[in-house]
């Protein structure tokens, strides 16, 4: 009786799917973090990204991570000042940084 040997998988066969899986995983993560120089007046203002307080006013560089989202929510809040809320896309941030190199939020005083 003759037996047919099981096919031996070549290294190429094994590496191919692993590579595809790895690429899919990277594409799935797709997290893009931007280093964004920010200027906020007044210096006492709080800076929120996606509802979390991440820092204060003045001139600072923030890392803004989009994670899986298409937009981030930026908010600047200070006592006796009108708050600012902006929903920004990656494209808007990239364009702003290309044109001006930073973001600037100057809050108006409440009347």
């Amino acid at each position: 009786m003759t037996t047919t040997p099981l096919p031996v998988r070549s290294r190429r066969d094994r590496v191919g799917p692993a590579l595809v899986l790895g690429l899919l995983a990277c594409a799935g993560c797709g997290s893009t973090t931007y280093k964004v120089p920010v200027v906020i007046d007044p210096p006492t203002a709080s800076f929120y990204v996606n509802g979390e307080r991440v820092g204060q006013g003045g001139r600072r560089v923030y890392e803004i991570d989009f994670g899986q989202s298409e937009r981030v929510c930026i908010q600047v809040v200070a006592a006796s000042h009108e708050p600012v809320t902006e929903m920004l896309t990656r494209r808007q941030i990239a364009d702003q940084l290309d044109k001006f190199g930073e973001y600037s939020w100057i809050l108006k005083q409440e009347k």
């Binding site: 929120y48 996606n50 509802g51 981030v72 929510c73």
Partner: peptide
């Protein structure tokens, strides 16, 4: 009051700021 148009792909944490 404060309002916002939220998309399915937006972050799930939402903070609303109410002015006087």
């Amino acid at each position: 009051g404060d309002n916002r148009a939220v998309r399915l792909t937006d972050p799930a944490r939402l903070l609303f700021v109410l002015r006087r």
